[in-house]
Structures are given as structure tokens and as C-alpha cells.
Design a protein around this nucleic acid. Structure first.
Lengths: 189, 189
DNA sequence: CGCCCCATGTAAGACGTTACATGATTGA
DNA sequence: TCAATCATGTAACGTCTTACATGGGGCG
């Protein structure tokens, strides 16, 4: 059925949901903003858009009003929004931390607009819960390798640990922001 | 000539250099340690090893002494070590930061054993130098998006900024360690 | 006019994922 | 002997990379 959309596909879905865009717009976002982890090559984006369209997750309409060149603007369909929500609300476990934070952060970034602040808070709490055991685990690995590995190898692992510690601080900070926002005056998107 | 080795290939080269290993050993490293970003699937590793062997960067020898099953142990060739060194010593710029730290950290982790502590220090200093402008840039982007993006989008960017700040601290800490090690009593690998 | 940017696309090839297949060894 | 683990491999499939191709529009 939903034949396993790659993460680029979800990045496109989320961006299109935030603002209907053409393929060219999306390429510029990938090349100019901090989303450089995704390729801005036409050979990646245009086929990906066509796949999403074939699955009826987005629909493209040709713009010609402004006298400019043919530009196809894509918008999410109801099905596309549902799929985006489903993906954002997937449970988060330890695997999602170790195998690339990128995807979790992407889901979080889109969560507020696509599902609502409570979903953002949910993601943050899952991340916080997963970070504890994960950090303990990394610490044990560091101790285990300490006598054997060269300095650079140890430091590389320490770098990972520090980055997860910094993530934990950020998570708590962000949780407090969303809790304030949810408990206090309810504010719209 | 050297037909562009993917990052998995360099991960294998570096690990084999640290300790001659079989494909199965390498799979276990990927699945059990914090190098989970690389796949431990046989369909990725065995073909990658054969590619490296075809390029004469590694050479496999079948072990049969220990009465166990046929196990092919791979070792770096001189050419393989040269290629590993070349890759580690490539210049590091801002692109290397934004498009995935993973590769820089891999190069750093292997640098001490493969090239020497001075190479590790070189990498660290390049990273430190690149981080300043990069952080300034991200800060500007944050200010630019502040009024428009939803809270979760802003926070996601802040998470990235924090992680680079933590990287900067780690970089300085690591630089001090390597400088001490290089200036003080020269110690071997 | 020539050049660069907009805007979209395609084709070849490399790589990784998933799933399956094979056999030998160890332990219950 | 049956299952699990060790150890290696292959085949199909999808996706990304790289490079090329096309054309209109604006600008000097």
C-alpha cells in the first residue's frame, strides 16, 4: 500500500504542507537553508515529487497567471496530510536516536503545524525518555574502549556523548516551552 | 582511477587498518557499536569489500588454522593505507560541517593511528576554524525565521545550533589534549 | 547578441535495502 | 537430530548521483 516513503519524501511533504511550492522552490530550500543534508539535485527531487503525486499524496497545478514561465505548484492532498501526520506520530525509541537524529528532528520541526503542539511535546518527551538509557550505554562503551583505542577514537566517541547531552538539555528546554504554551493561553499556529 | 569510494568504503578501510578483520567481524562492529549509522547488512558489506579488493586497497586471506569455518581476513595493502591517509588529510571546509559531521568524525577517529597525532590536531583546528562562521550563519538564519516559523521549527534550528556549540567546546578540549600530547613527551600509537 | 538564471526534466550508473540461499559448527 | 549461530554470498528492486538536455526570460 503505502510503499515506504524515503525520508526525502517526508521532507518534501512537510515543506509543501508548510507552504505550497514548486520543485524549484524546494530545491532552493535544500540548497540555501540548513537542510543541506538533502540533495538539491533535480535528479532527486523531481522524481520524488512524481512518486508522491502518483501516490496521490500531493497534487501539482500549473501556474500561469503571473506571466512567468510554467511553474508547477504542489499542494498536499488530504491523503498526503494524513500520511504526514501518521509519520510524525510514529512512536520514538532508542533506535531513532542512534540511527540519525535527522529524521526525528524533521518530524519535530513539522509536528506543530501538521498535528499540533501536543504532538511536538509528545516527541520531545519520547526523546527525553530514550536519551537516558542511551547515554548510559554510550558511557559504558567509552569505559570499555578506554584502555584500547587511540586518543582520537576515544575523543570521537566523547564527541557523540557530548552532543547527546546537549540534545538532552535542549529537549528539557523545549519541553518547558511547549508546556507553558499548552497550559497557559492557548495560542494558534 | 580511484573511482570515488563511498563513505562505507572508508569506514571499512579504517576499521581494517585498526585491526585486520573478516566481513563478519565488520558487520558486528556496525551492529553493536555506536557506528550504527552504517548498515550491517551483508548485502552492503560484502560487495563493498569486494570492490575495495578489486581496487587493490585491501587483500583477503582465508584463515583455516583454528579449525573453524573458512573466514576471510582482510588487511590493508600499501595502496589502501595511502588512500586512507589521503582521505583523512583532505582539507576540511564549511561544507563538511553542514553536510553531515559523520564523515569528519570518522576521519578524525582514524587519523591518529593512520597518519599520526599531528593529523588529528590538523583536523581539529580546521573544524574549529570552520565552526565560527558557520555558527554566525546559523544565528542569522534563526533571527531571520523567528517571526515566521512555528515554534517547533525554530526550536529544531536551535537544536542544531546548540549541537554545533557543543562541538566547538569539544573541539577546543580535544585540541588542548593533542597539543599537550605533542609538545610534552612524545608518545607512540 | 550572448550570457546567466529560472524551471523542468531524463538517462546511465552506482549504491544500499531487503530477502533469500547456502553450508558448517556448536550446543541442547 | 534440531535449532541457533557463524560466515559468506546473491538477486531484485528502489533510490540517489552525476551529467546532460531543453527552453523561456531578463539584462547588459
Amino acid at each position: 500500500m503505502a510503499k515506504q516513503i524515503p525520508s526525502l519524501g517526508y521532507a518534501l511533504l512537510g515543506l509543501i504542507h508548510q507552504k505550497p511550492s514548486s520543485g524549484y522552490d524546494l530545491r532552493k530550500i535544500f540548497s540555501s537553508t540548513s537542510m543541506k543534508t538533502y540533495s538539491d539535485s533535480p535528479g532527486a527531487i523531481y522524481p520524488a515529487l512524481r512518486r508522491l503525486e502518483k501516490q496521490s499524496l500531493i497534487r501539482g497545478t500549473v501556474e500561469e497567471g503571473s506571466g512567468l514561465r510554467r511553474r508547477q505548484i504542489f499542494r498536499l492532498t488530504a491523503k498526503g496530510l494524513a500520511e504526514l501526520k501518521r509519520w510524525i506520530e510514529l512512536p520514538i525509541g532508542r533506535d531513532d536516536l542512534s540511527s540519525g537524529l535527522k529524521i526525528v528532528m524533521l518530524r519535530f520541526a513539522f509536528s506543530e503545524k501538521a498535528v499540533g503542539p501536543s504532538a511536538s511535546l509528545e516527541i520531545l518527551k519520547s526523546v527525553e525518555a530514550a536519551l537516558g538509557p542511551h547515554l548510559r550505554d554510550l558511557g559504558e562503551k567509552l569505559e570499555a574502549m578506554r584502555p584500547f583505542a587511540p586518543t582520537s577514537g576515544r575523543l570521537a566517541l566523547e564527541c557523540g556523548i557530548r552532543s547527546y547531552e546537549s540534545l538532552l538539555e535542549w529537549t528539557r528546554y523545549s519541553i518547558s516551552i511547549f508546556e507553558k504554551q499548552l497550559q497557559g493561553g492557548r495560542r494558534e499556529t
